[in-house]
């Protein structure tokens, strides 16, 4: 759909466009984090690109790959009727140095989306006007959507009741069971496969 945009990006920015691919009508460009803002500005302001709208901004934790994090934006052009996906990769294997320029100056919707990515992955958006947690509470330590955040780790704001306080056993009866609901996310699939055999 917007292969012309990809070609234009490569012609304008050369080596700063690390890779491109087009699949199922979606065109993607992976670019240098240092030129993130510059390329985004070009995509918005160039009359042939004219991406007036940012549909989405999200983060990806690739965990065992360096650079570890990906910041992905989806851009839409209402006047041209095309769209593009733009990615950049930041951060070393410990998640340090995950910094990229903020796009709030270009699209206002980036404000809360960047706050969410910061909240969930700990990616810092430089020059963001108000970079603080948006979904989690300020007391929360760590970044919950990083792959090394333990799945069962909670950080309660209120101390949980003990059985002494409650005066009754707090173990769940049927149908809730000892696993507090449906903890299918923590199934040991290797063991289940062995049990099945």
């Amino acid at each position: 759909m917007s292969k012309a945009v990809l070609q234009k990006l490569q012609a304008t920015f050369g080596a700063a466009v690390l890779e491109t691919h087009s699949q199922f009508g979606d065109d993607t460009a992976v670019v240098e984090p240092s030129r993130w803002l510059e390329i985004a500005t070009f995509l918005r302001d160039d009359p042939a690109c004219a991406f007036e709208m940012m549909s989405d901004l999200c983060g990806v934790d690739r965990f065992d790959v360096t650079p570890r994090f990906e910041v992905v934006i989806h851009l839409n052009s209402l006047s041209k009727g095309h769209r593009i996906r733009l990615k950049t990769r930041v951060g070393d294997e410990d998640g340090e140095g995950a910094q990229v320029a903020s796009l709030v100056g270009l699209w206002k919707t980036a404000n809360w989306l960047e706050r969410e990515v910061f909240d969930m992955f700990g990616i810092t958006f430089q020059t963001h006007p108000d970079l603080r947690r948006i979904l989690m509470y300020p007391e929360f330590v760590g970044y919950p959507l990083r792959k090394d955040y333990p799945a069962e780790k909670t950080q309660p704001l209120v101390a949980y009741r003990t059985e002494e306080e409650a005066g009754v056993p707090l173990d769940k009866q049927a149908p809730f069971g000892p696993h507090e609901g449906m903890s299918f996310a923590r199934n040991d699939f290797t063991k289940r496969a062995e049990d099945a055999n």
């Binding site: 919950p144 955040y149 799945a151 069962e152 780790k153 909670t154 950080q155 309660p156 209120v158 949980y160 009741r161 409650a166 707090l170 769940k172 809730f176 507090e180 609901g181 449906m182 903890s183 299918f184 996310a185 923590r186």
Partner: peptide, 19 residues
């Protein structure tokens, strides 16, 4: 019991906090 929200966001049942 918290249901299938078995993660960092959710209280696994209100009896964790109140009777």
């Amino acid at each position: 019991s918290g249901g299938f929200y078995d993660n960092y966001t959710t209280v696994a049942g209100i009896d964790k906090i109140i009777p």
